[in-house]
Simulated assay, not measured.
Amino acid sequence: MADIEQAKATFARFDANGDGKVTAEEFKHAMAEMGDAYVTGPVAEAVIKAKDTDSDGLMSFDEFWTALQKS
């Protein structure tokens, strides 16, 4: 099980504008900053879509946390 405080810190790195939701563009940008320049727009969109349980096109912390619990 992941540590929720560590998960919140990680999520904050992805949530560039601090609105509580991560867009595909924010995800792609954060991954590039962390050294993974191979995450393209379509890849980022697929990752967000896979975790987006409410189908709003964004990843909330709750969705992120749920995905961590499954891994």
Rank of each mutant, 00 (worst) to 15 (best):
G35S: 10
T23F: 12
A7Q: 00
I48Q: 00
K21P: 03
T66Y: 03
D62G: 04
F27Y: 12
K21R: 09
Y38S: 12
I4E: 11
S60L: 08
I48P: 05
I4C: 09
G57R: 00
T53D: 12
F64H: 05
R13H: 13
D56A: 10
M31V: 15
F27A: 05
T66I: 12
D56P: 03
L68W: 14
Y38G: 13
T23H: 05
E45H: 07
Y38T: 14
E63Q: 07
D54C: 13
A44R: 04
D15R: 03
E33S: 02
I4Y: 11
D3F: 12
T10N: 01
D15A: 06
G35C: 11
S60K: 03
L68T: 09
T10R: 03
M34V: 04
A67W: 00
K28T: 10
F11W: 09
A9R: 02
D62H: 07
A30D: 02
A30Y: 05
W65P: 01
D3E: 14
A67R: 00
W65R: 02
M31G: 12
A7Y: 02
S55L: 15
A30L: 08
A32Y: 04
G18C: 12
T40P: 01
D62P: 08
T53W: 04
P42Q: 11
A12P: 05
F27G: 00
G57W: 00
G57N: 07
K49E: 04
T66S: 11
A46Y: 01
D54A: 12
S55H: 13
A44I: 08
D15N: 07
A37D: 10
A50S: 15
A37P: 05
D36T: 14
K21A: 08
Q69T: 11
A16Y: 01
M34P: 02
D15G: 05
L58A: 14
K28S: 12
E45L: 05
E26G: 08
S60M: 03
A12K: 13
E25I: 06
Q69K: 09
A7R: 01
V39L: 14
M1Q: 10
M34H: 07
K51M: 14
T53N: 10
G20S: 03
A67G: 03
K49L: 06
Q6T: 15
I4Q: 08
